[in-house]
């Protein structure tokens, strides 16, 4: 064995030794005190906030990793609010898309099952009333109870608002309290301003706020107040796109049991649909039209089609 051989032999041995050592080191991991799970200390918790996933524009969110035609996909996806291009995890959904779906559903359910902030009707100066429903549950399962007022409540309404008005405004929680909270403060003044163009008006104190309200509640109010036109702003059943959509159901001299077709409806009032102020302006014009033509619903449409 020459020097060269010895040298290379030693080298081999040393290399083997060190690599064994390395391997051992790698194996010991969890046993050492250093790497045992430990409670996070204050310093470990970052002050950062995760991004709000509900702010992601669904029309632009795109999770397909290797699309055949990315640009084309984004283009066709832009034509629909549907949740397309969300890809999959096996045959299931991606975490991001399933969490967003749950967030939107949570907002929708909260809008249904919570009450309108009790401060809102007070701040606005509305007359506060309630249908015969005693709870949200009763409201959801008994639509008939959500259309009726007790005799005492009817009397309260009669005593509190201006009798036989041209326009009786109503705000009802309906199926979305969030819709009322989001839109009422903008739509009421917009309707009032629009009515001025037609020489009409109503006072905010005469607006009736109805808790547990179904649309049909406006019929009894029409009978109680003897108004020419009754307009009810009510929260719509929430979808996943928005939980804040409101509708207006407007009727000329409504009576209990009248055909549904006699109502004129303006739906989809929310910040992604028809903005509240613009809806208010449009409703003002409709109110004027109904007072002039003494009609609403399909009768109004027929009269308009016949050339006024």
């Amino acid at each position: 064995m020459n020097e060269q051989d010895i040298k290379s032999m030693i080298e081999t041995i040393l290399t083997d030794m060190t690599s064994t050592k390395e391997a051992d080191k790698n194996n010991v991991g969890p046993q050492t005190a250093d790497s045992a799970p430990k409670e996070a200390t204050q310093q470990d918790i970052s002050g950062d906030v995760l991004d709000d996933i509900t702010k992601i524009d669904l029309r632009k969110q795109f999770l397909v990793p290797h699309p055949h035609d990315r640009e084309g996909y984004l283009k066709i996806k832009s034509f629909t609010p549907a949740r397309l291009g969300m890809w999959r995890a096996g045959c299931r959904y991606k975490t991001a898309s399933v969490l967003r779906f749950r967030a939107d559903h949570a907002a929708a359910q909260d809008a249904v099952f919570s009450d309108v902030d009790p401060q809102l009707p007070k701040e606005m100066g509305f007359l506060e009333t309630q249908t015969t429903c005693q709870s949200k549950d009763e409201y959801l399962t008994r639509p008939d109870h959500g259309r009726k007022f007790s005799d005492e409540m009817a009397e309260k309404i009669k005593q509190s608002v201006t009798p036989s008005p041209k326009i009786q405004m109503i705000v009802g929680d309906g199926l979305s309290s969030a819709a009322i909270e989001a839109n009422v403060k903008d739509i009421i003044p917009a309707i009032q301003q629009g009515l001025k163009v037609y020489g009409l008006s109503f006072e905010t104190k005469d607006v009736i706020f109805v808790k547990y309200a179904r649309v049909g509640a406006e019929d009894q109010i029409g009978e109680i107040t003897n108004a020419d036109v009754v307009c009810m702003l009510v929260g719509e059943r929430p979808g996943l796109v928005t939980a804040k959509s409101m509708s207006a159901y407007i009727a000329y001299k409504p009576t209990v049991g009248m055909p549904e077709a006699n109502r004129t409806v303006v739906s989809n009032i929310h910040d992604g649909g028809l903005p509240a102020v613009e809806a208010g302006a449009y409703i003002a014009e409709l109110l004027d039209k109904m007072i002039r033509l003494k009609k609403s619903g399909i009768d109004l449409k027929a009269a308009e089609n016949a050339g006024n």
């Binding site: 917009a190 301003q193 629009g194 001025k196 163009v197 028809l274 903005p275 102020v277 613009e278 208010g280 302006a281 449009y282 003002a284 014009e285």
Partner: peptide, 13 residues
């Protein structure tokens, strides 16, 4: 943006 009618009413006033 969709706001002409409300804006119109306000301008009218």
């Amino acid at each position: 943006e969709d706001m002409a009618k409300a804006l119109g009413h306000s301008i009218f006033a």
